[in-house]
Nucleic acid binder design. Structure first.
Lengths: 248, 248
DNA sequence: GCGATCAGCGGCACG
DNA sequence: CGTGCCGTTGATCGC
């Protein structure tokens, strides 16, 4: 495909349709960082909202990118240059893609107002647990959920069978140091606010050895959260199930 | 484009070339979570390494995805169904994309062995700072960089003009709670190890009000890092520059 | 708008 | 392989 042909197609569709260009190109980026990528075959996608993505033939992430709101334009000289700029008060960012040859260029009018629905997020697990905190510890009664204060946002607050306040921090994957310090912060803040002793329970499918050590040294507790997400979400601790058939 | 035509093209190129399919489809995902996305126009990209990306016409991130090593296959019935599976000991994941119509399907042999070079990462700033820690505070002398211990990895360790140990945690953007707790953890661990008082300096372009409050309450310090990355990296504190012309 | 946190985070580097 | 953590993180939700 001729560069000029690609240029015309891109020029007349940028900002309207989704544009795809595939070919041999170099890429430069300047903004929050600086990058260069010498010549090779890549896929360039420019979305209707300005999103600008340069993909190589491997890896999940775009090798160079610019978010929604960016403005793209094309220039034709020795190369077909496609530029994406994003300007804000604090920062200007720019990507230059120089195509020396184009294998394919096309534009597509994508009609799509649908939003994805995801089930199995931390919030979903939290809601499920809230229905029966006995899964975490017998006798726990929820006090409030996601209570926000200036120091952050707690997942679950409850009282144990002896009436003590308990903060529960939920993680959907292996817990690390950050989860421990996060929980510690909430516990300390809540103790100060309520002026009473507060327990902290980290509830996750696993925890690293060092994080566990730090957790215990801080007087906090770990509760293994055994869950599976298939056609239904199953928290194995107490055979707790929530059918998600209606989800489909 | 006929579904059968697209099917044949995809079938004969999956696992070899990069495949792109654009059309009206539904998407389901089951694995670490569960998701569904009802019918709309999307772009599907399957890379040579198995990476599987479903993009809508807006937003940077793929709405559904599967990483390298996934295996894709196609089936033709009432729909053109493209399936990507990723199996591991701990988890099986699967995406189903059902196309009811296809606007475009193509395969591309992308030759690209080039790697991106990026300048301006936290590590780069760290290296730059290490050349003259006076930028952070007059009299600082580096002891070590990126020293790992069981509790994490410290960016920079130095001694101040009075011989006290100083841990410097560097952030390339606005610092938050996590940066403070991270630094606090390092300082406490180093104090225990060395059995001496250790200072902690959080070095970032900015810090949130609450994080600063927590920092100060913890006896730690903040040092504003005024840097810009253009054709050269400039740390404004002491007019410290590093030319990066050779980077191009 | 800032701020705090989640994410199906991904990816990397080091033990 | 686990682990800690950075990322041009992005995306979301609350204030």
């Amino acid at each position: 495909m001729k560069l000029k042909e690609a240029f015309e197609l891109i020029k007349s569709n940028l900002g309207k349709k989704l544009v795809i260009v595939i070919g041999k190109c170099r890429v430069r980026y300047e903004g929050r960082a600086t990058s260069k990528l010498s010549e090779g075959d890549r896929v360039l996608i420019i979305k209707g909202d300005g999103t600008f993505l340069v993909h190589q033939n491997s890896g999940m992430a775009a090798i160079n990118y610019q978010g929604p709101g960016s403005v793209a334009r094309a220039e034709l000289n020795a190369f077909l240059r496609i530029i994406s700029e994003r300007k804000s008060k604090k920062l200007n960012e720019r990507i230059d893609v120089d195509f020396s040859s184009v294998d394919f260029a096309g534009s597509f009018d994508l009609i799509d107002d649908k939003q994805i629905s995801i089930y199995g997020s931390e919030k979903d697990l939290s809601n499920l647990l809230l229905q029966d905190l006995n899964i975490v510890e017998s006798g726990l009664v929820p006090v409030q959920q996601e209570s926000s204060f200036l120091k952050g946002r707690m997942d679950i607050v409850a009282r144990d069978r002896e009436g003590r306040l308990v903060v529960i921090e939920l993680k959907r994957r292996q817990a690390e140091f950050s989860a421990v310090t996060q929980l510690k912060r909430y516990v300390e803040e809540l103790e100060k606010r309520k002026n009473e002793k507060v327990r902290g329970i980290l509830c996750a499918p696993g925890i690293s050895k060092n994080a566990l050590s730090m957790l215990e040294k801080s007087g906090l507790e770990f509760s293994k959260l055994d869950y599976a997400i298939e056609k239904e979400v199953i928290i194995k601790g107490l055979e707790k199930k929530q059918k998600t058939l209606d989800f489909y």
